[in-house]
Design a protein around this nucleic acid. Sequence first.
DNA 1: TCAAGATGGTATCGAGACCATACCATTCAA
DNA 2: TTGAATGGTATGGTCTCGATACCATCTTGA
Lengths: 195, 195
Amino acid sequence: MNEQRIPLLDLVESLGRLAAGERRQRAVAAGLQPVHVQALDYLRRCNRYSNTPQALADYLGLTKGTVSQSLQLLERKGLIARRPDDADRRVLRLALTAAGEALAGTAGELAEWPAALAALPADEADAAAATLARLLATMQRRRGGQSFGACHSCRHFRHEGGDAYRCGLTGEPLGADDSRRICREHAWPEAAAAD
Amino acid sequence: MNEQRIPLLDLVESLGRLAAGERRQRAVAAGLQPVHVQALDYLRRCNRYSNTPQALADYLGLTKGTVSQSLQLLERKGLIARRPDDADRRVLRLALTAAGEALAGTAGELAEWPAALAALPADEADAAAATLARLLATMQRRRGGQSFGACHSCRHFRHEGGDAYRCGLTGEPLGADDSRRICREHAWPEAAAAD
DNA sequence: TCAAGATGGTATCGAGACCATACCATTCAA
DNA sequence: TTGAATGGTATGGTCTCGATACCATCTTGA
């Protein structure tokens, strides 16, 4: 028997801090702050309903004022483009430029983790991931906040056969690519967590 | 079959951010910054070799100058006491005051997590914890940084029968309480990670 | 139709974390 | 005993972040 009495939460927080530290290093090496790399990463992974300053603010847990500043900085650096929405002229639509896409790719990658993760037995890693996914879903529902999950795990997600999907909230059709993106309207199903 | 293709690292980071967010809320509710609560929590859990500004700076990954500022603030608020070491008069020994102990207790507690964690099947949580512990040990060794693990999981830890332990590095005897504290000299055993 | 509120975003200011640099005191090593 | 290493402080600057106030646009409802 081994002696790891370390509770699960402590481990998650320690690993999270470690990863955040590495991300921080890579961000400053790229001339950005960690939060800016997070923003770029979000824009790379969010869907078409979620590429606005307000959605980003909700995702990051920051005020819209703070996010507005960061976005201006990112635009000055030529990493994102901001253009008004056609339908609602209050709204800005954010998009990565080619430079932003490239930077998000390089600065978003972690150097040491893939190897360490690959060294874990696959079934063990999968089991741990399943457990953590349940925990995450529980926590997000319990806190009542937005969950920002991928589209395909959403309560409103409908499969219409083949590669055809639809969002039950907006009614719009979705492609296979859309279904893997982060959505600000995401809501976990009622009963089960991540099943 | 469920569709959680979410990789383990993403989950760890999401959960870490969620927990950090809750810690942040509780910290500001207590009139402190998150890093200050982290400092108090560290001082509550570290052993007698590790209660110095430099050790805290290493633990938090901050410069000693930054930590010096924070410690002055915490002393002004009456949450910690700083007194010079008897043997080495460069060194300051840090200790929580009664108020600091109380605040670390209340602000360090997370509200929603215990219930969510308890809702997980015990064997599943243990298995996930074991996996994450291995991952953490691997990452810390790989990055060559200090690990700040609990004394009992250290390479230098010696069990001398009953409740008698000893640190193989300093040679000093350790009680059962000591062996659960965070040590700045902590080093994982060579071969296995957390076994 | 039009006023009132809701929503998305910006401008500006202050607080404070954080780092870099320079510095002092003490201990340790040659 | 001199020089390097270590522990800590002081200071100035950068930058995040929140609060507040503000403007523009959309929505709702009487």
